[in-house]
Design a protein around this nucleic acid. Structure first.
Lengths: 205, 205, 205, 205
DNA sequence: CATGAATGAGTATTCATTCAT
DNA sequence: TATGAATGAATACTCATTCAT
């Protein structure tokens, strides 16, 4: 029925294959870790031949780097929207927390890959991950700083230290959650407690 | 007293060699990560032959596991002393923060190995390390719980979520510090801000 | 005659494409050697798709074999003309030398492919190429033999050994020339010295 | 009975293993060519594990390079002795011919590897082989030059062109011999004819 | 206890070849 | 005919582990 169905199929197949590989890689990396994952496992999970992966990625490292970049990019985009919204600063922080945990709740494997592999020691990976990580911290720090300037938050705390602390706290919560049974309600509750803890800690009195 | 000092030396040499291997392993694991570290590198750094490592450890995994066990044990011992001291709860938390950052400042490599490698290691290793990690969290959570029971901290926060958050925050601060220039005063300032943030967030009003 | 020039073009395009592939292959084989040459490189140099090569040749080996066959055939044709000319035997030898070096000077890459790849190729290929090589030697040997029979050359030398020696000498001269700066006058001078050496060595006294 | 037999065995085993690998490599390279030879084949032929090869050589290329270097070194040493002997110049040339062919007659595979692979296109190999090849040519050219200066050889031929021609002639003879059935008497006869051809060609009249 | 030479299982990556379009 | 995306077999090399000394 569709007139250009074949053309569509053709044009769509390449990116579609790239995506299948990335999705498969996220799953397998999350399950076995980067080093323990064989390229052939990714290929099998993606339903492509081993060699096909090398049509879309330079090598195994490149697959991981791409997951980082596109995953954090995705997080950053939403994060920026929240950070620049018209909401109160308290609500923005709460939404950042929920967002980060919530988004990842839907993408548990991506969370695992990003948090687990963020600290891989391969210098190459650190090179790629660190700047993106810093951008992430900076957006949160921006909300804190704005809140301080607007009188919502106490002014005696360094915004970037607060941001790092918040990020670390969420990271640890996610990690524990990922390592454990990981039921969504537990995560939601943890998010609420964490938000309350930080907001009380930040409040201007 | 012992006339034959050589005999004494001999008796002492075995554990001493084991220690040298562990110390060397901590260094190279911290620098290059577990997977990128060659057993021969550990041997070289320890000044022993490759094979010697297998006289003291079952295999490469076992070296990492031992570092975890003994490293966290060491941290736990000091942590418990603080946790069970007679100080105010606020001070105990502050001291825990300073302690953790302070101790790790002296043992940066151990910190790096424990936090970095816990995440990048294989499933098997992770399962092994997680309980030890949980013990650590539990000690901190104990202080929070006691503080709640004694009326020093607000009661509406789950102590383990607080503990995880605190641990994660400190971890992130350390990581950034380690990735950056890492001067001790900056770390000390970060510790103070972090302590203030959490204590205000925890305070019973 | 043909009204539809496009049809003509079409008919002519296939051989033309085959030639482009062969020419491209000669270039890249000469530059990088048979094994280090990728089929895709040949395709790119020829301006065709990878798969197109397989419409004209059975496989990569077949491309090399074809180059041998047609290249040596080409050399043989000219060589036979000289060998069977009415000139004196000395002049025929001289012309063979000039011809070989001269022809190759214009077709350096073909020379490189024939001499270099004959040696580095697999047993199978070698077996295939050797008889063609032998035909070449035989034509030269024929001139020597005829010269001996006619009393121009000494009779105590095996014509095929002389032919092989001459071929080898020219080959070595070309190789050195190709490895060095490779200016034509130097090659011409070398040809003259080589001719004089062999003709004096062959002369009937 | 030998007092130091074990020590001897220990010390002797490493070079002995290296030699076994080189000998095996010469055989397999000669039979299948460099590119078609698998490292595992060399290992199997040498009676060692695959990995052992990498204890003595950097990689597969390095094995070939070593064969070149040590093989030509061996030839050069003997060649220089002949070149600097007190014999007549004619005899020195004859002995050079016999020597080169004769030595290789005993080391057919080495001959095959050196002549077959001398022209491998790998730039790396060319780098290594060319200078050694030039040294070889230079020693022969030296004999020719001395012969010219002493009045034994005609002075109108460039010694290096003569040397290259002689080397090429011998190379071609060896190649044909190696490709064919290769019986020693045939080679000996070829050597005699070749010597006669070149000496007549060189003679001062 | 200590050594380090030897082992050989294990894997990322390449590239000739195919075939759906 | 022509294409070039996809395939997957094939292989050099690494490195944890062993064991004869």
């Amino acid at each position: 029925m569709a007139i250009h169905s074949t053309a569509k199929k053709r044009k769509g197949s390449a990116p579609e294959k790239r995506d299948r590989i990335l999705k498969a890689a996220i799953q397998v990396f999350a399950k076995n870790g980067f080093y323990a994952t064989r390229v052939s496992e990714i290929a099998k999970a993606a339903g492509v031949a081993d060699g096909t992966i090398y049509l879309y990625f330079k090598n195994k490292d490149d697959v991981l780097i791409t997951i980082f970049e596109e995953g954090i990019e995705q997080l950053l985009t939403i994060l920026r929207e929240v950070a620049e919204s018209e909401d109160t600063f308290e609500n923005r922080i709460s939404r950042i927390i929920e967002l980060q945990l919530g988004l990842l709740e839907e993408q548990r494997d991506l969370a695992e890959v990003i948090t687990v592999n963020l600290r891989q020691s391969s210098r190459l990976l650190k090179q790629y991950a660190t700047p993106l990580f810093m951008q992430y911290i900076d957006v949160i720090a921006g909300v804190v700083r704005d809140g301080q300037n607007e009188g919502a938050f106490r002014k005696d705390l360094n915004p970037r230290i607060v941001a790092r602390s918040l990020f670390g706290a969420l990271d640890a919560i996610l990690l524990t959650w990922a390592l454990g049974e990981g039921d969504p309600p537990a995560l939601r509750k943890a998010a609420a407690h964490c938000a309350s803890l930080f907001l009380e800690g930040l409040r201007q009195r």
